[in-house]
């Protein structure tokens, strides 16, 4: 009997050890770059610790949600994988606790990772403390429109209002009730810009827009109930931003209500009702930052992705039938935003 008890204790100890390891691994992953065969043509022989001359560049992402969230975090993972460089990429995702993210950022810096992406506005305070301790490391932080005066930090921000405006134009064109619902997270970061642009575009096309910030980036059930409430109040087209919208997309799908996505292409969530998604292509500005770094500039500049530089792209769902007239309206809006004749109002 005693031997049996001891066996049980060993089993429990084994399970707990396994659990601790799994918990530690759950939020962290390492992924090779899809661009590993793309060579290192764009690096320069800067004579420092840059990745020029065919060397592999070590990069890390620290992000608040899952790396495949079909939204914010995935947009950055996809962008780094699309770089035309040989990149050894490590990812720590799911760091919704800022202190955890700070520990990961510092850990990567201490491990000698050359470029660290702190993918979350909320990490700015931590970065202001960490970045000065590692002057040879380049930190890339966003979404943010300034570098906090740190010369080894690059900042990035999406002009999400631009794609939001285009989505808004299309949404208003599709709406029969003239009412459109928006499911937002917390009123911060690029969500504000996207929603402001969307509202502006939809209203320019004669629709009424109801915007709800649920107060959470992660509450899927609440996002779903918000979508349900929008539909019950007459909205017949929906959009939303951040990772919790997967719940809202499900509700829209059940009701057959068209959905507009942002950050990443959300068509796979509901191929029948996703009309179009504004997709972030951070690689456009990442490439500029890394080229500067190759030349010896470790940071100190802010970058923006927009429709003009190709960092923002409206990707349509081919399965959703959109009239030529509406597509032409969207194209006209994109052209107008790029040439400055249309203001998104954001």
């Amino acid at each position: 009997m005693k031997a049996n008890t001891r066996t049980w204790y060993r089993l429990v100890a084994l399970l707990l050890s396994f659990g601790l390891v799994a918990a530690a691994c759950g939020g962290s992953d390492s992924a090779g770059s899809d661009a590993s065969d793309g060579g290192t043509d764009e690096t320069t022989d800067a004579g420092d610790d840059s990745s020029g001359g065919g060397e592999t560049l070590t990069m890390a992402i620290v992000a608040p949600s899952a790396k495949n969230d079909l939204a914010f975090t995935q947009s950055m993972v996809d962008a780094i994988n699309a770089l035309d460089r040989d990149v050894d990429l490590q990812i720590t995702d799911g760091t919704f606790v800022v202190e955890d993210a700070a520990a990961a950022i510092r850990g990567y810096a201490e491990d000698g990772v050359q470029v660290i992406v702190a993918h979350g506005t909320q990490y700015g305070g931590s970065l202001a403390e960490i970045a000065p301790d590692f002057p040879d490391t380049t930190f890339i932080w966003g979404t943010a429109s300034d570098t906090q005066g740190l010369d080894n930090v690059f900042a990035y921000f999406p002009a999400a209002d631009e794609g939001g405006y285009v989505n808004g134009i299309l949404a208003a064109g599709l709406s029969e009730s003239g009412k459109i619902g928006v499911v937002g997270p917390i009123e911060a970061g690029d969500a504000v810009a996207y929603i402001a642009g969307f509202q502006s575009g939809a209203e320019a096309n004669g629709a009424e827009v109801s915007v709800v910030y649920t107060g959470s980036f992660g509450d899927v059930a609440l996002a779903a109930e918000t979508a349900t409430a929008h539909i019950a109040n007459g909205s017949d087209v929906l959009t939303g931003t951040a990772q919790m919208v997967v719940g809202a997309v499900g509700v829209a799908n059940d009701a057959g209500v068209p959905w507009f996505g942002t950050q990443a292409n959300q068509t796979s969530l509901a191929p029948d009702i996703v009309v179009a998604s504004q997709v972030y292509h951070w690689e456009v500005v990442l490439e500029e930052m890394l080229t500067l770094r190759d030349g010896g500039t470790k940071g100190g500049q802010a970058f923006e992705i927009d429709l003009a530089n190709g960092g923002l792209v409206i990707e349509f769902n081919d399965k959703f039938e959109l009239s030529d007239e509406l597509k032409a309206e969207a194209d006209a809006a994109i052209a107008g935003i790029i040439d400055g004749s249309i203001s998104t109002g954001a």
């Binding site: 799994a22 759950g26 790396k67």
Partner: peptide, 16 residues
């Protein structure tokens, strides 16, 4: 941690 790990390994991108 473990639910996320299983999700990443067995599913990956969210599917309804």
């Amino acid at each position: 941690g473990f639910s996320d790990l299983l999700f990443q390994v067995w599913v990956g991108t969210p599917l309804p």
